[in-house]
């Protein structure tokens, strides 16, 4: 009888959370353990809300869509970056350790300021379609045509939700605060692919042709391993690096 028995007894989960409130001068970072009974189909979204509602109302964390699409709830789950909202507790051991994503300013407990970081990245890499007279585009006439396959390839890269998991999983980002990370390099690839963006490779080189950009990557592949959207980040970075070497030479 090599069958796994049906789990009938509900597990008691020990959830250890790295706590710290930078707005409280008395607060010192520490791990705090909460015990709660596991429920059917419980996600970390459900578990953390239960802890806040019944045990510690001061616990800080971020959820918005709770459906794995908005990228708010990236955190370190048993040592690995991931989206908490779509992580089922049944796929984790009884002891679950949660910590805020490293690489971002801490707001409190599990809440970090990915928004500020991502806005800075967008401003620096100018992650928008650059086209002269865009504000005078003729919107009454038929739209410009695009090959269906190209539109799908752009969307493939556009699926990034800026959750920050790739930054938390990145060796270079640990060492270089100014590293744009896989999220930034992927954006460059997305706009480079887009015929509506008039920038040339030389323009992109000026943005990412150094160690804070594409040449900072050490190919550790943590970004791709932990990307919740399974974006082909390593291939994008490798391709971009070849293009930038050719452009810079």
């Amino acid at each position: 009888m090599n069958r796994i028995p049906v789990q009938e007894v509900r597990r008691s989960l020990q959830i250890r959370i790295l706590r710290h409130n930078p707005h409280d001068p008395a607060s010192k970072p520490c791990l705090q353990t909460f015990e709660l009974e596991e429920a059917e189909s419980m996600t970390l979204f459900i578990a953390l809300n239960e802890i806040r509602q019944t045990m510690d109302p001061s616990l800080q964390f971020d959820f918005v869509c709770r459906a794995g699409i908005c990228g708010s709830c990236g955190m370190i789950i048993n040592g690995r970056p991931g989206l908490a909202c779509r992580t089922l507790t049944r796929n984790l051991p009884e002891c679950i350790t949660l910590a805020p994503l490293p690489g971002f300013e801490l707001i409190g407990d599990l809440s970090v300021n990915t928004g500020k970081w991502m806005r800075g990245m967008s401003e620096r890499l100018e992650t928008w379609v650059h086209q002269r007279d865009l504000d005078r585009a003729d919107i009454d006439q038929l739209e410009e045509r695009m090959e269906p396959d190209l539109a799908e390839r752009i969307y493939e890269l556009e699926r990034c939700i800026e959750c920050g998991c790739c930054i938390a999983a990145c060796g270079t980002a640990r060492m270089r605060e100014d590293f744009v990370g896989a999220v930034g390099l992927n954006q460059i690839m997305r706009f480079r692919l887009d015929p509506r963006d008039e920038r040339s490779d030389a323009d992109f080189y000026a943005l990412v042709g150094d160690e804070s950009g594409v040449f900072g990557c050490m190919t550790l592949l943590g970004c791709e391993d932990y990307c919740p959207k399974d974006l082909p980040l390593a291939a994008q970075i490798a391709f971009l690096r070849r293009r930038m070497v050719a452009t810079g030479a």
Binding site: L134, E143, M146, P148, E152, R196
Partner: peptide
């Protein structure tokens, strides 16, 4: 229709007719 064409010009990768 103007809104969608504006977004198309701005960069939304709308699926296209094949």
């Amino acid at each position: 229709p103007k809104a969608i064409r504006e977004l198309a010009a701005w960069g939304v990768p709308w699926n296209r007719v094949q």
